[in-house]
Design a protein around this nucleic acid. Structure first.
Length: 991
DNA sequence: TCTCTGCCCAGAGGA
C-alpha cells in the first residue's frame, strides 16, 4: 500500500473528510474558470461526489490524493463552493493559528518558515511588555478594574516571578517595565468607562452584523456585560484553525431597532493603533473559530490598549472566504513540502517555498530572513522553475557568502530528512485522533481516558497551574498508557469543546485521574463530560530545525562547529597538562584519579588536553556514569564551567544523583515535574520558590551561582544560554541522540565531550527514507572517524567473563575486559539451589523437562524456588506484544517484581539475571528489521551481570546474520546446558 | 513490520 503519510480516514457529517480523487479545470467560452473535484467519503473509494469550485475558489491548490473538508450544502451528490456560500478546507486536520494566517497576508514564505523555525523570533522589549499588559488587562477585566486594584495587580505581575526569565534574557530592569506599563493604565479606565456596564453615551460605532441590515441600524452602542473567558483555547477542525482568544465577552449591542446580545471575541493590542488588515484578520478568524462553540458572533473587536480605543471588526463572508483561501495556501505549502521526482520515483526532494516577495522594506525587519535566504540558496537556486525577484539575488548572495558548498549541501540534506521525519510523525501521531476518534475507540489503544467528570474543587497550586480531579462516570478506567508526568489534552466529549486545556498528569487511580492544567475549568457546567488524551505533538522536531538554522549563521560559534562537524577539521589537542591544571587543583585531581581505572584516567587526560572535542566510547558496564561524574569533578576543580546534558531527563538525573554525593554544586534546569525527586531541590523552579526570588538581579545570581549546569539537550533554549558560555559541554548517551539535537548544547560551550557507544542503539528515526539518507547517524558516530579524539573505556564491571565473551566476539573484537577477578567469576546467588536440585532429581517431571516438552506451548522459567529476588531478574524482548503476553502471565505470580521491557528500553541498565525472549519462529520471508540490527542484539546480551538466559527458535533465528554469528559461537562453546553461565534453550513454539 | 524520547504554547510587536 502506498498511502500518503498524512492519510486520514475519510468520513461524513459535521467533521466530514473527503479524499480528492480527481481534479479537472473547466474553462467555457466567456465564462470564469471552474475546478471540478471528484471526491469520496468512503474508504473503498466508491460513492463519489462532485465538488464545483467557482468565483476564485478554483485557485485553491488542491491535487488528487488530498484530504478536504467541505462546509456548505450538498444537493444530489454535488457541492458548490462559490462566492455566496460554502468553504473548502484543505487538510483540515492541520490546524493553523490565527497569527500564522494573518502573517501570511504580507509574506506567505515567512508564515511557512515560521511554522518550521519557531524559535527564530527571540522576543523583544515590546513583545514582553505586550504580554505583561495582556495579562494585567485580562485579569483586571475579569476581577476588578478599580484604579488601585489595577495598580496593585500591575505591581504584583511586574515584580513577581513569572516574567523574570524573559527580563533576564532581554537584560531589562523591572523598574523600566513598570514605568512603561503605567503609561497604559489610564487607557484601561477610559475603556471601562466607555464600554463596561453603563457605558458613556459618546460610544457609538458602525457595526455590521449581517448583510440584511438597514443602514440606520449600523450605528450601535456597545456594552460589555460579562467576561466569559480569557485566553480561551479553540481548536477548529472544521476550518483547520486554532487559536487563543484574548477575551471572550458577552456584548449587548444597542441599536435603534432594539438590543441584541452576542458572545464575541475581543483581541487586545498593545502596539501602535494601526487597525491594520493583519489585526483585523486575526479577529475575523476568531469569529470563525467561535462557530465551534456558539452561534456565529458575526463580528468581534480590536482593542488598542495604548489609547483604549475599540474598533468593531465584522466577519463578512468576503473576508472569511479570502482568509480561508489564504489558509489553504499555507496548508498546501506545509503539506507538500517534499515531492517525488518523476524520474527516480523513490527519491523525495524538497519543494520550493512560497515565492520571495519583492519588498526590501518588509524584508528588512523580517525575523525569518536568514532562513529565507538560506533555503533559497541551498535548495531553490538549483530549481529552474523558481523565479526570483532580480533585486534580491545579490542580497541573498551576500547574506549567505559565509557558507561553503559543503555547508549548503548539509543544510539541504538535513532539511529534507527532518521534513520526511516530520511527515512520518504526523501520520502516526498528531492531534487529529482527538477529534477524529471517539474516546471509547481511542481508549483501546490506551492513549485516552474518556467519560470523566470533574470532582472536588480546583486548586491553584501556583501561578497558572490548576490541579483538577477527574472521576470516571461509571466503572473503572480501562488499561491506559497514561502515566504520571505525561502531557495531556483535556477536551469535552461533545463537539466543540476540543483542547480546553493542556497540562500534566499528577496521579492515575482506578477510577480517578488528577491533572495539573494551565487553565481553570471550574466555570464549565458541572455535568460536562471530559476526555483526557495523551498529548503526542510534533514539538520535538522544531528543535533540530532550529539548530540546523543556527549552525548556518554567520557567527564564530557556528563557523567553528561547521568546520568540525561538516568539514571534519581535525580536533586539536594541547601538549601538556600543566597549562590547564592549576597548581592548587593538583591534589584534588590526583585524589579523584585514584578511584579510576586506566582507560578512565586516559579519558580524563584527553579531555583536559582537548581544544575542540573528545569522544568517550563507553562499552557496556564500563562505568560511564562514574567516569562522567569524575570528569565533572575534575573540570570544576580546575575552575572550568561545565554544561552537562543528555537526551533524557532520566539520564541527566542519573549522573546528578551520583554527583550530589560529592561536594560539587550544580543547577538543574528543566521542569521540576520531569526531574528525579531527589534532584528537584537543585532545579531553578525549586530554588526560586525556596529563596522567593523576585528580582532580575536575584535571578542572575541563581544562574551564575554554580559552575555546573545540567539540562536535557532540548532544554538549551533557556535564557541562561543567551548570556552564558561554558568551558566544557558533556553530552551523555550521545550515540543515541539525533545529530541536530545533539548540536543544541554545543553552541553554548567552547569544547565538548560526547559519551556513548555506537555499537549500541542509534537514534530513533521513523521515516525509512530519512534513515536511508543517513538520519540515524549520531554526531558521535559521525565524528568517530577522527580516531585521535576517541578514548575507549574497555574495563567493565557488569558481566561475568562468560557473558562478556559473547559481546566481545560479536562486536568488540576482544577489547572488553573484566574489571576484577570478582567480576569475572561472579555467579548468581541462589541459596536454595541444592534443595531444588534434589527436588528436580526426584521428580519425574523436572521443570527443565517441562520447558523442553513440546506439549507445553507456553511456559515461564520460574526461578522462585531457587531463591533469588524477583527484582534481580529482567525479561527482555524486542517486541511489545511479546512483553504484554509475558506480563499478563506473570501477573498471576505473587510478589512479582520482575522487570519486563523492550531491548530498547533496557539500554543503559543491567540486572543480575536477564532472560531474553527472541520470539521469532517462522520460515516465511518476513524477517523483520528489529533482529537484523546487531546493535540491538549487542544491547540485549550485555544487560546481564551473572546469568543470561536466551529463549528462541534456533533455525528461525539463524537467518538473522548477527544471531547466526552468536548461535555458532554458543554451539562451539557448548553453552547449551542447564545452569551454565549462559544458557541457550532450543525451543520452538515457545510463547 | 511494529523498536519510541524530547518539548509549554499561540501570540507577544515591528513596518
Amino acid at each position: 500500500k502506498t498511502e500518503p503519510s498524512n492519510y486520514v480516514g475519510v468520513k461524513n457529517g459535521l467533521n466530514n473528510r473527503y479524499r480528492v480523487l480527481d481534479v479537472s479545470v473547466i474553462q467555457r467560452n466567456g465564462s470564469d474558470p471552474e475546478k471540478h473535484l471528484t471526491i469520496t467519503a468512503s474508504e473503498s473509494l466508491e460513492n463519489t461526489q462532485l465538488c464545483i469550485l467557482r468565483n476564485g475558489w478554483e485557485s485553491v491548490p488542491v491535487v488528487p490524493g488530498d484530504i478536504i473538508h467541505l462546509e456548505g450544502e450538498c444537493s444530489s451528490g454535488t457541492w458548490v463552493i462559490n462566492q455566496q456560500s460554502g468553504y473548502l478546507v484543505l487538510y483540515p486536520d492541520l490546524l493553523l493559528s490565527g497569527t500564522t494566517i494573518s502573517n501570511s497576508i504580507r509574506c506567505m514564505r515567512r508564515a511557512v518558515l515560521s511554522e518550521r523555525f519557531k524559535g527564530s523570533e527571540s522576543g523583544s522589549r515590546q513583545t514582553l511588555i505586550g504580554t505583561i499588559l495582556h495579562e494585567i488587562f485580562q485579569q483586571s477585566v475579569t476581577n476588578n478594574l478599580a484604579r488601585e486594584k489595577v495598580e496593585e495587580l500591575a505591581n504584583k505581575i511586574v515584580y513577581g516571578q513569572k516574567y523574570l526569565r524573559e527580563m533576564y534574557h532581554l537584560n531589562l530592569k523591572q523598574m523600566e517595565i513598570m514605568q512603561e506599563v503605567e503609561e497604559y493604565l489610564p487607557s484601561f479606565f477610559k475603556w471601562a468607562e466607555d464600554f463596561l456596564h453603563n457605558p458613556a453615551n459618546q460610544n457609538k460605532m458602525q457595526l455590521k452584523l449581517s448583510s440584511h441590515e438597514k443602514p440606520e441600524d449600523l450605528s450601535s452602542k456597545i456594552e460589555i456585560v460579562d467576561i466569559l473567558d480569557i485566553e480561551e483555547n479553540i481548536w477548529s477542525p472544521r476550518f483547520g484553525l486554532k487559536g487563543k482568544i484574548d477575551v471572550t465577552a458577552r456584548v449587548k449591542i444597542h441599536r435603534q431597532s432594539g438590543v441584541q446580545s452576542r458572545i464575541m471575541p475581543l483581541e487586545l493590542k498593545s502596539g501602535k493603533e494601526s487597525n491594520s488588515i493583519e489585526h483585523r484578520s486575526q479577529v475575523i478568524l476568531y469569529t470563525l473559530m467561535n462557530l465551534e462553540r456558539r452561534v456565529d458572533p458575526e463580528a468581534g473587536f480590536l482593542l488598542y490598549l495604548k489609547t483604549g480605543t475599540m474598533y468593531p471588526v465584522s466577519g463578512t463572508r468576503m473576508d472569511r472566504r479570502e482568509l480561508m483561501k489564504l489558509r489553504n495556501h499555507v496548508a498546501f505549502y506545509l503539506t507538500h513540502s517534499t515531492y517525488k521526482s518523476a524520474v527516480g520515483k523513490e527519491h523525495s526532494q524538497l519543494a520550493a517555498l512560497p515565492p520571495v516577495i519583492d519588498d526590501s522594506q518588509a524584508c528588512k525587519y523580517c525575523s525569518q530572513i536568514h532562513n529565507c535566504f538560506l533555503y533559497s540558496r541551498a535548495v531553490e537556486q538549483k530549481m529552474a522553475s523558481v523565479s526570483f525577484p532580480p533585486a534580491m539575488v545579490p542580497v541573498v548572495e551576500t547574506e549567505t557568502r559565509h557558507l561553503k558548498p559543503s555547508h549548503l549541501e548539509y543544510f539541504s540534506l538535513w532539511y529534507l530528512m527532518l521534513t520526511l521525519e516530520l511527515q512520518s510523525g504526523e501520520g502516526k501521531k498528531g492531534y487529529k485522533n482527538i477529534w477524529m476518534m471517539p474516546s471509547m475507540e481511542r481508549e483501546k489503544a490506551g492513549d485516552c481516558v474518556g467519560n470523566m467528570i470533574r470532582v472536588d474543587e480546583v486548586q491553584e497550586i501556583s501561578e497558572g497551574q490548576y490541579l483538577h480531579f477527574f472521576q470516571r462516570r461509571n466503572g473503572v478506567i480501562p488499561g491506559t498508557n497514561l502515566l504520571v508526568g505525561d502531557r495531556v489534552v483535556v477536551s469535552g466529549e461533545e463537539n466543540g469543546l476540543l483542547g480546553l486545556a493542556t497540562g500534566y498528569v499528577r496521579e492515575v487511580g482506578v477510577t480517578k485521574v488528577s491533572c495539573l492544567l494551565g487553565r481553570n475549568l471550574s466555570k464549565l457546567p458541572k455535568n460536562t463530560i471530559f476526555r483526557l488524551d495523551h498529548e503526542e505533538g510534533d514539538f520535538g522536531i522544531g528543535v533540530p530545525f532550529e539548530n540546523l538554522s543556527k549552525l548556518m549563521r554567520d557567527s564564530q560559534v557556528s563557523e567553528r562547529l561547521r568546520n568540525l562537524i561538516i568539514d571534519f577539521h581535525k580536533p586539536r589537542f594541547i601538549q601538556h597538562l600543566s597549562s590547564v591544571l592549576p597548581p592548587e587543583a593538583k591534589e584534588t585531581v590526583a585524589n579523584i584519579l585514584k578511584g579510576l581505572n586506566k582507560p578512565q584516567k586516559q579519558a580524563m587526560k584527553q579531555v583536559l588536553l582537548s581544544e575542540d572535542y573528545t569522544l568517550i566510547v563507553g562499552m557496556p558496564g564500563t562505568g560511564k556514569t562514574t567516569t562522567i561524574c569524575a570528569l565533572v569533578r575534575i573540570l570544576s576543580a580546575c575552575g572550568f564551567s561545565v554544561l552537562l546534558t543528555s537526551f533524557t531527563h532520566t539520564a541527566v538525573d542519573n549522573i546528578l544523583l551520583k554527583l550530589a554525593k560529592f561536594k560539587v554544586g550544580f543547577l538543574r534546569l528543566g521542569r521540576a515535574q520531569k526531574v528525579h525527586p531527589d534532584i528537584r531541590k537543585f532545579t531553578e523552579e525549586e530554588i526560586c520558590r525556596s529563596k522567593s526570588i523576585k528580582s532580575v538581579s536575584d535571578l542572575e545570581e541563581v544562574y551564575s551561582s554554580q559552575p555546573v549546569v545540567a539540562t536535557s539537550c532540548m532544554g538549551v533554549n533557556h535564557p541562561i544560554f543567551v548570556r552564558k558560555q561554558f568551558d566544557f559541554c558533556i553530552v551523555d548517551e550521545a550515540s543515541q541522540i539525533s545529530q541536530l539535537i545533539c548540536l543544541g548544547p554545543l553552541f553554548c560551550s567552547k569544547r565538548f565531550v560526547l559519551v556513548g557507544d555506537h555499537q549500541q542503539l542509534p537514534p530513533l528515526v521513523l521515516n525509512a527514507e530519512a534513515r536511508d539518507l543517513g538520519m540515524s547517524e549520531s554526531l558521535f558516530k559521525r565524528l568517530e572517524q577522527n580516531q585521535n579524539a576517541v578514548v575507549q573505556l574497555t574495563v567493565q564491571y557488569r558481566m561475568n567473563s562468560k557473558i562478556m565473551s559473547l559481546s566481545n566476539m560479536l562486536v568488540y573484537e576482544g577489547k572488553l575486559e573484566c574489571g576484577s577477578e570478582k567480576v569475572s567469576n561472579a555467579t548468581v546467588s541462589l541459596p536454595n539451589l541444592k534443595k531444588l536440585k534434589l527436588e528436580l532429581a526426584d521428580a519425574s517431571k523436572t521443570w527443565l523437562k517441562e520447558v523442553l516438552d513440546p506439549d507445553t506451548p507456553v511456559c515461564f522459567l520460574n526461578t522462585e524456588k531457587a531463591g533469588c529476588k524477583s527484582s534481580d531478574i529482567g525479561i527482555i524482548s524486542p517486541y511489545r506484544h511479546q512483553l504484554k503476553t509475558i506480563t499478563d502471565l506473570m501477573g498471576k505470580l505473587k510478589e512479582n517484581r520482575v522487570e519486563v521491557n523492550t531491548v530498547d528500553k533496557y539500554q543503559g541498565r543491567d540486572k543480575s539475571i536477564i532472560i531474553v525472549s527472541f520470539v521469532r519462529n517462522s520460515n516465511d520471508d518476513n524477517l523483520g528489521a528489529l533482529l537484523k540490527d546487531w546493535r540491538r542484539l549487542n544491547v540485549a546480551i550485555t544487560r546481564a551481570k551473572h546469568k543470561l538466559i536466551m529463549v528462541g527458535c534456533v533455525p528461525s533465528l539463524c537467518r538473522y546474520p548477527p544471531l547466526e554469528k552468536l548461535l555458532c559461537h554458543l554451539q562451539s562453546e557448548a553453552m547449551i546446558s542447564f545452569f551454565l553461565h549462559a544458557v541457550f534453550i532450543f525451543k520452538c513454539n515457545i510463547l
